[in-house]
Amino acid sequence: MSTTTRIDDLPLREELRGKSPYGAPQLDVPVRLNTNESPYPAPEDLVRRIAERVSEAARGLNRYPDRDAVVLRTRLADYLSRTAGLRLGPNRVWAANGSNEVLQQLLQAFGGPGRTALGFDPSYSMHALISRSTGTGWVSGPRTEEFAIDTHAAVAAIREHRPHVVFVCSPNNPTGTAVSPETVLALYEAAQEAARDRRGALFVVDEAYAEFSHRPSLLPLIEGRPTFVLTRTMSKAFGAAGLRLGYLAADAAVVDAVQLVRLPYHLSAITQATAHAALEFADTLLGYVEELKAERDRIVAELTALGCDVTESDANFVQFGRFADAQAVWRRLLDHGVLVRDNGVPGRLRVTTGTRAENDAFLDAVRAVMKEIAE
């Protein structure tokens, strides 16, 4: 007789029991605005360039790819130097399969059993999930009712818990709020002081949505701060969520450290070739970002006019509410053919900025749902 084995029947690590994998519903609906992807497909010129790059790479698939992706890291360093106000060399940049793998490698190198990471919830849930998956303890730091980081409260939490790794997400996901350089520096200094007996603490600023912000990048803050790391992704501003390419900028010693834990030849030749092509079209793709920023600001204004409580956003998404039953509103919007994200923030939902037509459909659905609720 066959029996069904449940995950709880397996010798799973205790800290993983009862947890759920990261993910968002992937439903076939007319308007899908729940995963912060770019709504714009790659332009045809870029598609052709990708095909050329991949064709060249395919001729050498019998060999391993460039193990350290030096040429790609050089291009990424050039992009950051040009757009974020700090001249970098490839020795200060590292790339991996999405920013999630970058975060995982950082926690493998600087976290682990007996060590603690601290972030400020609600924030990007993978910070906590990857921490736990690497055996790193997780501490949730405080936010204000407006989802900002209160500097004094955050510094107090760092002093109390003395974390080995600190995460700050700016602009923050799922709220869209940015963090000021002054607050970031105060938290960095507090983390180093609290860990002065163990060579300091790793301080990670997750800038996945930086290109959508009205504020300058925090990248210049890494200068002279050897444990300050800034992470980015090509999934958002480059419209390349399917590429899976993330990267970090930091002191060269941090790049040396993550290479101790990275898997051999972790970035395929095809991934590297595609990323090269996308970087060649950076200016074109950043033009789409400007369109999305304008649409995001329109969504904020329209939702506010409808009476929604809207969180100020520097990202390509908007958090809105407050609803007595956010899950019920999510389902009603889905009934109208619009999929948004229920991130579990009480009374609130999150919508990704889409095309103008998609945003119009979303706003029409919100109007209809609010009328239904009122009736």
Rank of each mutant, 00 (worst) to 15 (best):
R59Y: 13
R59G: 15
L61K: 07
N62V: 08
D66N: 14
V70F: 01
V70W: 12
V70A: 11
L72G: 01
L72W: 12
L72F: 07
R73S: 07
R73H: 14
R73Y: 14
T74P: 00
T74V: 02
R75M: 10
R75L: 07
A77R: 09
D78C: 07
Y79P: 02
Y79N: 01
Y79I: 04
L80S: 12
S81F: 02
S81T: 13
T83Q: 08
T83E: 12
L86K: 13
L88R: 08
P90Y: 10
P90N: 10
P90T: 06
N91Q: 09
N91G: 04
N91H: 06
A96E: 12
N97R: 09
G98R: 06
S99K: 02
N100P: 00
N100H: 02
V102N: 03
V102M: 03
Q105N: 09
L106E: 00
L107E: 05
L107W: 00
Q108V: 03
Q108A: 11
A109N: 05
F110I: 14
G112Y: 00
G112H: 08
G112V: 07
G112L: 04
G114K: 09
G119I: 07
G119V: 04
F120P: 03
F120N: 04
F120I: 06
Y124F: 13
Y124P: 01
S125C: 06
S125T: 06
M126Y: 14
H127P: 00
L129K: 14
L129F: 11
S131V: 02
S133W: 11
T134R: 11
T134P: 03
G135E: 08
G137F: 09
G137V: 11
W138G: 02
V139R: 15
S140H: 11
G141T: 13
G141I: 09
P142I: 06
R143K: 15
T144V: 05
T144L: 02
E146K: 13
E146Y: 13
F147S: 01
F147M: 11
I149M: 09
D150R: 00
T151F: 04
T151H: 12
H152M: 11
H152G: 09
A153N: 07
A154R: 04
A154K: 01
A156W: 08
I158G: 11
I158P: 09
I158C: 10
R159K: 14
H161S: 13
H161T: 12
P163I: 12
P163S: 13
H164T: 05
V165F: 08
V165A: 04
V166W: 06
V166K: 02
V166F: 04
C169L: 01
C169Y: 06
S170E: 00
S170G: 00
P171H: 05
P171F: 03
P171W: 10
N172I: 01
N173K: 15
N173T: 14
P174I: 07
P174K: 13
A178Q: 04
A178D: 08
S180Y: 15
P181Q: 08
E182P: 07
E182Q: 15
V184I: 15
A186F: 05
A186I: 04
